Simulated assay, not measured.
Amino acid sequence: MVDIDFHHPLFLHPSDTPGTILISHRLTGVENYSVWSRLLRIALLAKNKLGFVDGDCRRSTYPDSLRAQWDRCNAFVLSWILNTMSPDLSTGLVFASDSAAVWTDLKDHFSKVDGSRIFFLHQSIAHLTQGDATVSSYFTQLKLLWDEYTALVPFFTCDCEVAQQNSSHLHQQRLFQFLMGLNETYAAVRSQILLMQPLPSVNRAYSMIVQEEAQQSLSSVLPHASEPIALLSTASGNRKKFNGTCDFCKVKGHKKESCYRLIGLPPDFKFNRKKASPAALTVSFDDSLLNSQSAPVFAPQQYSELLELLNKTRTVPAPAVNCAGSLQWQDEGDW
């Protein structure tokens, strides 16, 4: 028997079995034949068995000593093809004996490279949007449509200037198609990409959009730092908007719990009016308690005398009060 090394197309690895499923994608009909054939060709190339389906590895090209080995390899390839087809399609090929003939027959049945298929791909690419999908899932679907279109209508490239311009135009078109289908949450980063000179590749734009998606996801789960400040401002505003009357002194603008006639004067107390009627003086006194910023400190005895003086002014006729002039505290100015 002739020795066969692992580079030879007729070599079979010990791990190769007829029941091996080379690809997870199953052929179901015309709608997925292009993708299925592309994936299976890649898998057969990795196994060094692509020549069995494209006609390069024929039985007649080998000597009699290797034809039995060719039959074994052909049976393996035929089994791998049937394993990746739907049961309805594979049933009609169980009596086939040549893997190349089966491959050609499938191509004749399902490879429909006509205007309707190309139109469908154009329409799918133009109307594909991200929606509820992630950026990665959306880009994968779009790239799958691009690859199928390229397989059906290949672009021939060379080193000439015209070919380079066509290739540049194709890449730019795919960049615009990708950006148009994104959700409006990526409008800012999309504008930044379009302002770049030169325009980035579609893969580079995809990387930038994925980074933006990660930042938006992180921002949505972090607590907002402004919430405690907003709550504090709201609470402060509620205190300033109190329009009720104190239950103790019967003066508007503060509650009994904050009445200085009960809790005492603050260290920064200062009167802010010189002359007033007794009623206005009482209001001015309470306003001064609430709005003062800096003033001398009163002792408890001084505070009691001040309250007693204010109570007496309520019984004195208005002219007597007006003649008395401004009230003055020793060495501290008017109050």
Score class of each variant (00 low, 15 high):
285 F>P: 10
45 L>E: 12
106 L>P: 09
113 V>M: 11
123 Q>A: 04
175 L>G: 05
96 A>R: 02
127 H>W: 03
42 I>H: 05
334 D>M: 08
57 C>H: 06
121 L>D: 08
242 F>W: 15
291 N>P: 06
315 T>P: 05
276 A>F: 11
298 F>E: 00
125 I>Y: 05
32 N>G: 07
179 L>K: 10
2 V>P: 14
102 V>Q: 00
65 S>F: 11
114 D>A: 10
312 K>L: 13
332 E>G: 09
88 D>A: 07
184 E>A: 06
102 V>L: 15
68 A>R: 02
284 S>R: 07
127 H>Y: 09
136 S>G: 10
285 F>S: 00
13 H>F: 03
215 Q>A: 15
325 G>D: 06
140 T>S: 00
176 F>D: 14
109 H>F: 08
200 P>C: 10
183 N>M: 02
240 K>L: 13
158 C>K: 06
189 V>T: 09
124 S>F: 02
238 N>Q: 11
104 T>Q: 14
149 Y>A: 02
3 D>C: 14
73 C>V: 07
328 Q>S: 12
54 D>W: 11
309 L>Q: 10
124 S>A: 01
131 G>Y: 00
148 E>M: 06
124 S>D: 05
195 L>Q: 07
325 G>F: 13
314 R>P: 02
232 L>I: 09
161 E>R: 02
23 I>P: 00
156 F>D: 12
53 V>A: 11
184 E>C: 11
158 C>Y: 09
135 V>P: 14
216 Q>L: 15
183 N>Y: 04
161 E>T: 01
122 H>F: 02
180 M>W: 08
1 M>F: 06
141 Q>V: 05
40 L>W: 09
93 L>K: 03
10 L>N: 00
84 T>Q: 07
182 L>N: 01
41 R>E: 09
42 I>Y: 05
107 K>Y: 01
222 L>N: 00
118 I>M: 03
257 E>Q: 14
79 S>N: 01
312 K>F: 09
7 H>S: 13
284 S>F: 13
2 V>A: 05
264 G>F: 13
302 Q>P: 08
